[in-house]
């Protein structure tokens, strides 16, 4: 068995590797330096000690200023990693992210690039309710100019984070908070990169394709296990990159199975699943054996109370119900 590490360790080792490999890589965000314990979850432990206070800085609680500083530094040749503690806090910096980071390359006619990475974490499961656990990837996916990326295991997180840091465009890197302390195989090399825009077949299957990303990859795999016992082969595709998403892999897969389900933890309405489902219908209408099904959270804030929170997050039963609908 290969070495097992947590997602937090994977992030930490990837950051160490990136900062050692390239002096233009910087990190700043709330509490990220060692005197502040290397981040509230310790994701950046050791970095300020090793790489110094110039390149690794704890910031004021000022999300606009954090992202603005990352944009300017990126325009001037740095590769900043800005940590926004929780994805919901990105809303405070939306002007900087959507009006500036996303658009400056286009609006300058290609003269200024913004090679920054915004790391953030989110995810329901800890009773942190409606302002601390939203998945907001659709907001960013809807803004031209941002790459939106998330990994489903420690090695995946490491490889994708490395690609984001060294990508020449602004990347929103979404980490899943409950997965921080889950273990998985370590990457073969903490500097290994997984290319952006290339999906992964997380599980093969011939009958139904489930397209997902982030924490829902494990949920889809659990549903696939159940269906396997019933003799139905469920293929699970981990998109890894939401923008640009790997249309080719998804369309080729669904062309073969003829049945598709898209699932994500974010609210279903107007979500990423709607876009993927629409493209499948537009491109493969005559190949489909059933309408594409979408699974997502209901249109409410992430609730606090434990039974409500459990019911809010799409689970394997909901994915199973969607799979079964495509089989009827």
């Amino acid at each position: 068995m290969s070495k097992q590490i947590t997602t937090l360790q994977a992030i930490n080792e990837a950051m160490h590797h990136a900062m050692a490999a390239d002096p233009t890589v910087m990190l700043f965000g709330e509490d990220v330096a060692d005197p502040e314990e290397g981040g509230v979850n310790g994701a950046s432990k050791g970095l300020s000690t090793k790489f110094g206070d110039l390149r690794v800085r704890s910031t004021p609680i000022s999300e606009q200023a954090i992202i603005g500083a990352a944009i300017g530094a990126a325009m001037a040749g740095m590769r900043p990693v800005a940590e926004i503690m929780l994805m919901n806090f990105m809303t405070v910096a939306m002007d900087m992210i959507t009006n500036h980071a996303a658009k400056l390359r286009f609006m300058s006619g290609g003269q200024t690039a913004v090679p920054l990475t915004i790391r953030c974490t989110t995810g329901a499961g800890f009773g942190t309710a409606g302002q601390h656990s939203d998945f907001l990837e659709a907001w960013f996916a809807h803004t031209a100019g941002l790459k939106v990326v998330t990994g489903a295991s420690p090695a995946e997180v490491s490889g994708l984070l490395n690609s984001c840091i060294f990508d020449d465009d602004p990347c929103i890197f979404i980490e899943n908070l409950p997965a921080y302390w889950q273990k998985g195989d370590a990457p073969t090399d903490p500097g290994a990169r997984i290319p952006l825009g290339v999906a992964r077949i997380a599980r093969p299957g011939d009958d139904v394709t489930v397209i997902t990303y982030g924490p829902q990859v494990a949920v889809a795999q659990a549903a696939a296990e159940t269906m396997a016992a019933e003799g139905v082969g469920v293929q699970v595709i981990d998109l890894r990159t939401i923008v640009p998403w790997d249309r080719e892999t998804v369309l080729n897969a669904v062309a073969k199975t003829g049945r598709a389900v898209v699932t994500h933890e974010a609210v279903k309405a107007f979500g990423v699943g709607a876009e993927i489902s629409s493209v499948i219908h537009e491109e493969l209408f005559s190949d489909l054996k059933a309408a594409v099904q979408r699974v997502g959270a209901p249109s409410c804030a992430v609730p606090y109370s434990n039974p409500l929170e459990k019911a809010f997050v799409p689970d394997a039963d909901k994915v199973l119900a969607a799979i079964r609908k495509t089989l009827n």
Binding site: G72, A73, M75
Partner: peptide, 13 residues
């Protein structure tokens, strides 16, 4: 905020 970032790059470099 963006001016700060340009200045930050100058400070680091």
């Amino acid at each position: 905020p963006i001016a700060n970032g340009l200045a930050l790059a100058s400070q680091v470099k």
